[in-house]
Nucleic acid binder design. Structure first.
Lengths: 149, 149
DNA sequence: CACGAAGATGCATTTTAAGTGTATCTTTTA
DNA sequence: TAAAAGATACACTTAAAATGCATCTTCGTG
Protein backbone atom coordinates (compact mmCIF):
# COMPACT_ATOMS: atom_id res chain seq x y z
CA UNK A 1 0.00 0.00 0.00
CA UNK A 2 1.42 3.29 -0.97
CA UNK A 3 0.72 6.79 -2.13
CA UNK A 4 2.13 8.05 -5.42
CA UNK A 5 5.23 10.23 -5.45
CA UNK A 6 2.95 12.70 -7.14
CA UNK A 7 0.97 13.24 -3.95
CA UNK A 8 4.03 12.86 -1.76
CA UNK A 9 5.83 15.66 -3.58
CA UNK A 10 2.72 17.81 -3.68
CA UNK A 11 2.91 17.84 0.11
CA UNK A 12 6.64 18.46 0.06
CA UNK A 13 6.23 21.39 -2.32
CA UNK A 14 3.66 22.88 0.03
CA UNK A 15 5.99 22.35 2.99
CA UNK A 16 8.81 23.99 1.05
CA UNK A 17 6.67 26.99 0.19
CA UNK A 18 5.40 27.17 3.75
CA UNK A 19 8.97 27.22 5.03
CA UNK A 20 9.96 30.11 2.73
CA UNK A 21 7.02 32.49 2.90
CA UNK A 22 9.10 35.60 2.28
CA UNK A 23 10.00 34.91 -1.33
CA UNK A 24 8.97 33.13 -4.51
CA UNK A 25 10.40 29.69 -5.06
CA UNK A 26 11.07 28.39 -8.57
CA UNK A 27 10.16 24.98 -9.90
CA UNK A 28 13.79 24.44 -10.85
CA UNK A 29 14.81 25.05 -7.26
CA UNK A 30 12.24 22.61 -5.94
CA UNK A 31 13.22 19.93 -8.45
CA UNK A 32 16.90 20.30 -7.60
CA UNK A 33 16.34 20.36 -3.86
CA UNK A 34 14.28 17.19 -3.89
CA UNK A 35 16.29 15.69 -6.75
CA UNK A 36 13.36 14.78 -8.95
CA UNK A 37 12.52 15.66 -12.54
CA UNK A 38 11.34 19.14 -13.43
CA UNK A 39 8.53 17.66 -15.52
CA UNK A 40 7.09 15.91 -12.57
CA UNK A 41 7.30 18.98 -10.37
CA UNK A 42 5.67 20.90 -13.22
CA UNK A 43 2.66 18.63 -13.32
CA UNK A 44 2.32 18.66 -9.56
CA UNK A 45 2.64 22.43 -9.33
CA UNK A 46 0.22 22.97 -12.19
CA UNK A 47 -2.41 21.03 -10.35
CA UNK A 48 -1.67 22.76 -7.08
CA UNK A 49 -2.11 26.07 -8.89
CA UNK A 50 -5.34 25.07 -10.58
CA UNK A 51 -6.70 23.85 -7.25
CA UNK A 52 -5.87 27.21 -5.69
CA UNK A 53 -3.29 26.04 -3.17
CA UNK A 54 -0.43 27.79 -4.89
CA UNK A 55 0.03 30.94 -6.91
CA UNK A 56 2.46 30.77 -9.80
CA UNK A 57 3.83 33.87 -11.47
CA UNK A 58 5.75 33.76 -14.73
CA UNK A 59 8.62 35.81 -15.98
CA UNK A 60 11.80 37.01 -14.40
CA UNK A 61 11.61 37.06 -10.63
CA UNK A 62 8.56 34.83 -10.81
CA UNK A 63 7.97 31.61 -9.00
CA UNK A 64 5.65 29.91 -6.58
CA UNK A 65 3.98 31.04 -3.42
CA UNK A 66 1.29 29.66 -1.15
CA UNK A 67 -2.11 31.06 -2.00
CA UNK A 68 -3.69 30.20 1.36
CA UNK A 69 -2.58 30.36 4.95
CA UNK A 70 -0.84 27.12 6.00
CA UNK A 71 -3.44 26.60 8.72
CA UNK A 72 -6.13 26.63 6.02
CA UNK A 73 -4.54 23.84 4.00
CA UNK A 74 -5.65 20.45 5.25
CA UNK A 75 -3.41 17.48 4.58
CA UNK A 76 -6.46 15.26 4.02
CA UNK A 77 -7.79 17.74 1.50
CA UNK A 78 -4.51 17.77 -0.42
CA UNK A 79 -4.28 13.99 -0.46
CA UNK A 80 -7.89 13.59 -1.59
CA UNK A 81 -7.40 16.04 -4.45
CA UNK A 82 -3.94 15.02 -5.61
CA UNK A 83 -3.98 11.25 -5.31
CA UNK A 84 -5.16 9.79 -8.61
CA UNK A 85 -7.47 7.13 -7.24
CA UNK A 86 -8.80 5.54 -4.11
CA UNK A 87 -10.12 2.33 -5.62
CA UNK A 88 -8.41 0.27 -2.97
CA UNK A 89 -9.39 -3.01 -4.57
CA UNK A 90 -10.98 -4.21 -7.77
CA UNK A 91 -14.53 -4.30 -6.42
CA UNK A 92 -14.48 -0.53 -5.84
CA UNK A 93 -14.68 -0.12 -9.58
CA UNK A 94 -18.12 -0.19 -11.15
CA UNK A 95 -17.21 -2.57 -13.95
CA UNK A 96 -15.28 -4.96 -11.73
CA UNK A 97 -17.64 -7.90 -12.15
CA UNK A 98 -16.41 -9.60 -9.01
CA UNK A 99 -18.73 -12.50 -8.40
CA UNK A 100 -18.81 -11.77 -4.71
CA UNK A 101 -19.68 -8.11 -5.01
CA UNK A 102 -23.22 -8.02 -3.79
CA UNK A 103 -22.87 -10.82 -1.28
CA UNK A 104 -19.72 -9.84 0.57
CA UNK A 105 -18.88 -7.01 2.88
CA UNK A 106 -15.25 -6.50 2.03
CA UNK A 107 -15.92 -3.37 0.06
CA UNK A 108 -17.77 -1.79 2.96
CA UNK A 109 -15.01 -2.66 5.41
CA UNK A 110 -12.29 -1.22 3.20
CA UNK A 111 -14.33 1.87 2.55
CA UNK A 112 -14.74 2.47 6.27
CA UNK A 113 -11.01 1.99 6.79
CA UNK A 114 -10.21 4.43 4.01
CA UNK A 115 -12.45 7.02 5.61
CA UNK A 116 -10.63 6.52 8.90
CA UNK A 117 -7.33 7.05 7.10
CA UNK A 118 -8.45 10.28 5.49
CA UNK A 119 -10.15 11.51 8.65
CA UNK A 120 -6.84 11.15 10.48
CA UNK A 121 -5.17 13.30 7.84
CA UNK A 122 -7.98 15.83 8.12
CA UNK A 123 -6.78 16.51 11.64
CA UNK A 124 -3.53 17.91 10.31
CA UNK A 125 -2.86 21.13 8.42
CA UNK A 126 0.19 22.40 6.59
CA UNK A 127 0.78 24.69 9.56
CA UNK A 128 1.27 21.59 11.74
CA UNK A 129 3.84 20.25 9.31
CA UNK A 130 5.99 23.35 9.40
CA UNK A 131 5.92 24.29 13.07
CA UNK A 132 9.66 24.10 13.25
CA UNK A 133 10.29 26.53 10.43
CA UNK A 134 13.91 27.47 11.22
CA UNK A 135 14.91 23.86 11.35
CA UNK A 136 13.13 23.11 8.10
CA UNK A 137 14.85 26.01 6.39
CA UNK A 138 18.12 24.70 7.62
CA UNK A 139 17.42 21.26 6.20
CA UNK A 140 16.49 22.66 2.83
CA UNK A 141 20.04 23.87 2.82
CA UNK A 142 22.16 25.87 0.49
CA UNK A 143 19.84 26.07 -2.47
CA UNK A 144 16.91 27.39 -0.51
CA UNK A 145 18.97 29.87 1.45
CA UNK A 146 21.00 31.16 -1.48
CA UNK A 147 18.51 31.45 -4.35
CA UNK A 148 20.28 32.76 -7.44
CA UNK A 149 23.51 34.72 -7.16
CA UNK B 1 -3.81 4.77 -3.28
CA UNK B 2 -4.51 1.14 -3.64
CA UNK B 3 -3.88 -2.30 -2.31
CA UNK B 4 -2.27 -4.93 -4.50
CA UNK B 5 -4.44 -7.55 -6.20
CA UNK B 6 -2.28 -9.94 -4.26
CA UNK B 7 -3.84 -8.87 -0.98
CA UNK B 8 -7.24 -8.35 -2.57
CA UNK B 9 -7.33 -11.93 -3.82
CA UNK B 10 -5.93 -13.28 -0.58
CA UNK B 11 -9.09 -11.97 1.05
CA UNK B 12 -11.25 -13.31 -1.73
CA UNK B 13 -9.69 -16.75 -1.45
CA UNK B 14 -10.44 -16.73 2.27
CA UNK B 15 -14.02 -15.63 1.57
CA UNK B 16 -14.35 -18.40 -0.98
CA UNK B 17 -13.05 -21.00 1.43
CA UNK B 18 -15.24 -19.60 4.18
CA UNK B 19 -18.27 -19.92 1.93
CA UNK B 20 -17.54 -23.56 1.12
CA UNK B 21 -16.50 -25.09 4.43
CA UNK B 22 -17.79 -28.56 3.61
CA UNK B 23 -15.26 -29.45 0.94
CA UNK B 24 -11.77 -28.81 -0.38
CA UNK B 25 -11.44 -26.15 -3.03
CA UNK B 26 -8.74 -26.37 -5.70
CA UNK B 27 -6.48 -23.56 -6.82
CA UNK B 28 -7.64 -24.16 -10.38
CA UNK B 29 -11.22 -23.60 -9.32
CA UNK B 30 -10.37 -20.37 -7.50
CA UNK B 31 -8.37 -19.06 -10.45
CA UNK B 32 -11.18 -19.82 -12.89
CA UNK B 33 -13.88 -18.41 -10.67
CA UNK B 34 -12.08 -15.12 -10.20
CA UNK B 35 -10.59 -15.21 -13.70
CA UNK B 36 -7.00 -14.59 -12.71
CA UNK B 37 -3.81 -16.51 -13.39
CA UNK B 38 -3.13 -19.76 -11.59
CA UNK B 39 0.41 -18.60 -10.84
CA UNK B 40 -0.85 -15.65 -8.96
CA UNK B 41 -3.33 -17.70 -6.95
CA UNK B 42 -0.50 -20.15 -6.28
CA UNK B 43 1.70 -17.52 -4.74
CA UNK B 44 -1.13 -16.12 -2.70
CA UNK B 45 -2.25 -19.51 -1.45
CA UNK B 46 1.31 -20.57 -0.64
CA UNK B 47 1.68 -17.59 1.62
CA UNK B 48 -1.73 -18.13 3.17
CA UNK B 49 -0.67 -21.70 3.92
CA UNK B 50 2.71 -20.74 5.34
CA UNK B 51 1.01 -18.15 7.55
CA UNK B 52 -1.36 -20.79 8.86
CA UNK B 53 -4.60 -19.34 7.52
CA UNK B 54 -5.16 -22.14 5.05
CA UNK B 55 -4.43 -25.83 4.91
CA UNK B 56 -3.43 -27.22 1.53
CA UNK B 57 -3.45 -30.93 0.79
CA UNK B 58 -1.86 -32.38 -2.33
CA UNK B 59 -2.86 -35.28 -4.49
CA UNK B 60 -6.11 -36.42 -5.94
CA UNK B 61 -9.06 -35.13 -3.98
CA UNK B 62 -6.81 -32.54 -2.38
CA UNK B 63 -7.32 -28.81 -2.23
CA UNK B 64 -7.62 -25.93 0.16
CA UNK B 65 -9.45 -25.47 3.40
CA UNK B 66 -9.49 -22.84 6.12
CA UNK B 67 -7.20 -23.71 8.98
CA UNK B 68 -8.85 -21.40 11.50
CA UNK B 69 -12.39 -20.45 12.33
CA UNK B 70 -13.55 -17.49 10.25
CA UNK B 71 -14.20 -15.49 13.40
CA UNK B 72 -10.53 -15.95 14.32
CA UNK B 73 -9.24 -14.47 11.06
CA UNK B 74 -8.95 -10.70 11.27
CA UNK B 75 -9.07 -8.71 8.08
CA UNK B 76 -6.49 -6.28 9.44
CA UNK B 77 -4.20 -9.17 10.25
CA UNK B 78 -4.50 -10.58 6.74
CA UNK B 79 -3.84 -7.21 5.13
CA UNK B 80 -0.83 -6.53 7.36
CA UNK B 81 0.70 -9.89 6.53
CA UNK B 82 -0.10 -10.11 2.84
CA UNK B 83 0.43 -6.57 1.59
CA UNK B 84 4.03 -6.23 0.43
CA UNK B 85 4.75 -2.83 1.97
CA UNK B 86 3.32 0.02 3.92
CA UNK B 87 5.92 2.62 3.07
CA UNK B 88 3.26 5.12 2.17
CA UNK B 89 5.76 7.68 0.98
CA UNK B 90 9.47 7.91 0.34
CA UNK B 91 10.37 9.22 3.78
CA UNK B 92 9.12 6.01 5.43
CA UNK B 93 12.14 4.29 4.00
CA UNK B 94 15.33 4.50 5.99
CA UNK B 95 17.55 5.39 3.06
CA UNK B 96 15.18 7.99 1.66
CA UNK B 97 17.43 10.95 2.30
CA UNK B 98 14.58 13.44 2.13
CA UNK B 99 16.00 16.75 3.24
CA UNK B 100 12.93 17.49 5.27
CA UNK B 101 12.91 14.23 7.18
CA UNK B 102 13.88 15.28 10.65
CA UNK B 103 12.25 18.68 10.50
CA UNK B 104 8.81 17.86 9.21
CA UNK B 105 5.90 15.98 10.65
CA UNK B 106 4.45 14.47 7.52
CA UNK B 107 5.78 11.05 8.30
CA UNK B 108 4.15 11.06 11.71
CA UNK B 109 0.82 12.20 10.31
CA UNK B 110 0.79 9.52 7.63
CA UNK B 111 1.82 6.89 10.11
CA UNK B 112 -1.07 7.81 12.39
CA UNK B 113 -3.47 7.69 9.46
CA UNK B 114 -2.18 4.28 8.44
CA UNK B 115 -2.73 2.98 11.95
CA UNK B 116 -6.30 4.29 11.83
CA UNK B 117 -6.81 2.46 8.54
CA UNK B 118 -5.54 -0.83 9.89
CA UNK B 119 -7.39 -0.42 13.18
CA UNK B 120 -10.64 -0.10 11.24
CA UNK B 121 -9.86 -3.37 9.47
CA UNK B 122 -9.03 -4.97 12.80
CA UNK B 123 -12.68 -4.55 13.72
CA UNK B 124 -13.70 -6.99 11.02
CA UNK B 125 -13.19 -10.74 10.78
CA UNK B 126 -13.67 -13.17 7.96
CA UNK B 127 -16.85 -14.28 9.70
CA UNK B 128 -18.26 -10.78 9.18
CA UNK B 129 -17.47 -10.96 5.49
CA UNK B 130 -19.34 -14.19 4.95
CA UNK B 131 -22.45 -13.70 7.08
CA UNK B 132 -24.66 -14.22 4.10
CA UNK B 133 -23.21 -17.58 3.17
CA UNK B 134 -26.07 -18.89 0.98
CA UNK B 135 -26.03 -15.76 -1.10
CA UNK B 136 -22.26 -15.90 -1.49
CA UNK B 137 -22.44 -19.50 -2.58
CA UNK B 138 -25.01 -18.55 -5.11
CA UNK B 139 -22.81 -15.79 -6.48
CA UNK B 140 -19.84 -18.08 -6.80
CA UNK B 141 -22.09 -19.93 -9.19
CA UNK B 142 -21.77 -23.01 -11.30
CA UNK B 143 -18.10 -23.74 -10.81
CA UNK B 144 -18.24 -23.68 -7.06
CA UNK B 145 -21.41 -25.70 -6.83
CA UNK B 146 -20.44 -28.32 -9.40
CA UNK B 147 -16.78 -29.05 -8.68
CA UNK B 148 -15.49 -31.67 -11.06
CA UNK B 149 -17.88 -34.02 -12.84
C1' DC C 1 11.38 46.40 -27.93
C1' DA C 2 14.04 42.39 -27.62
C1' DC C 3 15.91 39.04 -24.72
C1' DG C 4 16.00 35.98 -21.04
C1' DA C 5 13.75 33.95 -17.06
C1' DA C 6 10.13 31.88 -15.49
C1' DG C 7 5.69 28.89 -15.69
C1' DA C 8 2.18 26.13 -19.02
C1' DT C 9 1.18 22.48 -22.14
C1' DG C 10 1.60 18.28 -24.72
C1' DC C 11 3.51 14.10 -26.16
C1' DA C 12 6.88 10.38 -26.42
C1' DT C 13 9.91 7.47 -23.86
C1' DT C 14 11.71 4.88 -19.91
C1' DT C 15 11.35 2.45 -15.52
C1' DT C 16 9.65 -0.55 -12.31
C1' DA C 17 6.51 -3.13 -9.61
C1' DA C 18 2.80 -6.11 -10.25
C1' DG C 19 0.98 -9.75 -12.52
C1' DT C 20 1.39 -13.81 -15.92
C1' DG C 21 3.36 -17.94 -18.13
C1' DT C 22 5.92 -22.13 -18.27
C1' DA C 23 8.50 -25.88 -16.53
C1' DT C 24 9.64 -29.10 -13.14
C1' DC C 25 9.24 -31.29 -8.62
C1' DT C 26 6.58 -33.49 -4.74
C1' DT C 27 2.73 -35.63 -2.55
C1' DT C 28 -1.37 -38.42 -2.39
C1' DT C 29 -5.04 -41.45 -3.65
C1' DA C 30 -7.48 -44.54 -6.77
C1' DT D 1 1.72 -46.51 -11.28
C1' DA D 2 -0.69 -42.93 -13.28
C1' DA D 3 -3.26 -38.87 -12.66
C1' DA D 4 -4.54 -35.07 -9.73
C1' DA D 5 -3.39 -31.96 -6.83
C1' DG D 6 -0.14 -28.40 -4.45
C1' DA D 7 5.09 -26.41 -4.18
C1' DT D 8 8.89 -24.08 -6.12
C1' DA D 9 11.60 -21.46 -9.31
C1' DC D 10 12.53 -18.49 -12.93
C1' DA D 11 11.60 -15.82 -17.13
C1' DC D 12 8.42 -12.80 -19.46
C1' DT D 13 4.79 -9.19 -20.07
C1' DT D 14 2.06 -5.27 -18.81
C1' DA D 15 0.56 -0.98 -17.19
C1' DA D 16 1.00 2.87 -14.36
C1' DA D 17 4.17 6.09 -12.77
C1' DA D 18 7.84 8.92 -13.59
C1' DT D 19 11.06 11.24 -16.88
C1' DG D 20 12.65 13.79 -20.93
C1' DC D 21 12.12 16.90 -24.53
C1' DA D 22 10.07 20.40 -27.39
C1' DT D 23 7.34 24.30 -27.80
C1' DC D 24 4.39 28.02 -26.23
C1' DT D 25 3.11 31.92 -23.09
C1' DT D 26 3.97 35.51 -19.82
C1' DC D 27 6.54 38.94 -17.61
C1' DG D 28 10.29 42.03 -16.20
C1' DT D 29 14.52 44.51 -17.37
C1' DG D 30 18.20 46.70 -19.98
Amino acid sequence: MQITQYTDYALRVLIYLGACPERRVTIKEVAETFDISRSHVMKIVNQLVSLGFVEGTRGKGGGLRLNRAPAAIGVGEVVRLMEPGFDLVDCFRAESGCLLSSGCRLKGALHTALQAFLAALDEVTLADLIVNQPRLRNMLGVIALNPSP
